[in-house]
Amino acid sequence: MSRPIVEARGLHKHFGAVHVLRGIDLSVAERELVFVIGPSGSGKSTLLRCLNRLEEPSSGSVVVDGIDMLAPRTDLNQARQRIGMVFQSFNLYPHMTALGNVTLALRKVAGKSRAEAEALGKAALERVGLADRAGHMPGELSGGQQQRVAIARAIALEPRVMLFDEPTSALDPELVGSVLAVMRSLRESGMTMLVVSHEMGFARKAADRVLFMDGGVIVEQGPPAVIFERPVHDRTRAFISQIQRH
């Protein structure tokens, strides 16, 4: 196995008195697609957000693409370019066009000229099937299109790993497919991905590995077939049967 892209060791996170992450060890290999499932409040999102330090881990270590994310000398803003993140609520900048959303960090962080940034931005929008929406404002796009612009904004920076935090949870059911299709094509292009989501169908087909989290720990992990069909732990079994009932 090649060097892991993401390597977290002994990760703990406290929010005041609440102990959200209770010692997470996680290693994601290059080109691997890892699904994270678990009940709400189990720490899935917090885990993702600790990896790019949107949340400050209380203790432990995070290494992404060989960069120690918690070292004081690490240039966090440069490091974050290698970690794309997609949010449940899209978080597009409402005052910029789709292309403007995609090119902002290319210009300000990656230091590209306007022309270069626009070429890269258009290519990224092309990859998510929205080349014809470059000049549209987020408010003029459907939820599915907004989320695909958000994916384009992240992949335009050519990250080494993509973090998806419930990317389809805020979408109407008929729009979910378009976002999953983009994620599938990203996967096929070899992107390393860490996905918090309950899209079981997608997980079954696309994931290499599924982690089940509960109470701030990884309860068990394995290939989707094993986790979904023959989980070892009662908690996993209870959770899987609950989400499959819907």
Binding site: N52, L54, N77, Q78, A79, R80, Q81, I83, G84, M85, F87, S89, N91, L92, Y93, L104, A105, K108, V109, A110, A150, R153, A154, L157
Partner: peptide, 13 residues
């Protein structure tokens, strides 16, 4: 919204 800060910071701004 806080998500605007987070989206911006997550891209390295």
């Amino acid at each position: 919204p806080k998500g605007q800060w987070e989206a911006a910071r997550s891209t390295g701004l």
